[in-house]
């Protein structure tokens, strides 16, 4: 891929992580470019979520190099991830049922006006703008989260990632337990993030959803890279074969930089 000539938005090289005797990740590489949706797929315990948690600043790697926009970084905390322009939506949506859509979007990073008071009006404006940008079907930003459907809540969670103008969005199983119409909305949102020029890491078990919106599919197997596929021209069978281990990554990936 000639994109290698451009600096990737996110570059992870030789990432390893152990939990006691468990090798969660062994020398894993991952690259994400601007305006690109990269899907991370694999069986249970393949290391997908562990890798995502490192980008989100929830876990730190034992070894390996992370670069954002070509600059080596450490991401020790979620706040650090946010400062670097990384936004993450975890599988268990961290939303507050009793608060309305606007409050959820801005939770923990409320806008202040000149006098330091909470600027509710501006927050509501921004919230409406973001939901409109995502062509969301949420009619009002004042409704409490408990009134929304599962798909709408997922849309709020995705919209939340856009507060603070991130560069990279990580979505962990965004379509799990959604109806087809709700899944459709979430997938359209993901295309919207891509069109906004953001890099997207998409983790999912659903191969149809993954292949619908991803540009590239990266397969993890037992904490190791097991193939990288162009989602725009690769059939379902090839990816499944790599996930199950029926096929192995043919050639070693580009020499990783061990730290």
């Amino acid at each position: 891929m000639t994109e290698a000539t451009r600096t990737p938005l996110l570059s992870m090289r030789g990432i390893s992580k152990r939990f006691g005797g468990v090798e969660a990740l062994v020398g894993v590489d991952l690259e994400v470019h601007r305006g690109e949706v990269v899907a991370l797929v694999g069986d249970n315990a393949a290391g997908k979520s562990t890798l995502a948690k490192m980008v989100a600043g929830v876990l730190t790697p034992d070894a390996g190099l992370i670069e954002i926009d070509g600059v080596p970084v450490t991401i020790p905390t979620p706040a650090a991830a946010h400062a670097l322009g990384v936004a993450t939506v975890f599988q268990e949506l961290a939303l507050c049922d009793n608060l309305d859509v606007t409050s959820n979007l801005f939770l923990g990073r409320e806008l202040r006006d000149g006098r330091g008071a909470r600027d509710d009006e501006r927050m509501e404006q921004v919230a409406r703008q973001i939901l409109r940008d995502l062509t969301s079907r949420i009619p009002t930003v004042r409704v409490p989260l408990s009134h929304l459907s599962a798909g709408q809540r997922q849309a709020v969670a995705i919209a939340r990632t856009l507060i603070g103008s991130p560069r990279l969005v990580v979505l962990d199983e965004p379509t799990a337990s959604l109806s087809v119409a709700q899944t459709a909305e979430v997938l359209v949102h993901i295309e919207g993030l891509r069109d906004l020029g953001l890099g997207v890491v998409l983790i999912s078990h659903n191969m149809t959803d993954v292949r619908s919106v991803a540009d590239r599919v990266e397969v993890l197997r037992h904490g190791r890279n097991n193939g990288s596929f162009d989602a725009r021209s690769t059939g379902y069978e090839h990816i499944i074969a790599a996930i199950t281990g029926a096929s192995r990554a043919a050639t070693p990936r580009p020499v990783p930089l061990r730290s």
């Binding site: 087809v180 119409a181 899944t183 359209v188 149809t208 619908s212 021209s233 059939g235 379902y236």
Partner: peptide, 21 residues
Amino acid sequence: QMLPLPFEHPSDTTLDRGALL
């Protein structure tokens, strides 16, 4: 509603999703 589809989607999965949609 619009739903993105994968490359070379098969008729069974797509018609099933279409019906559910």
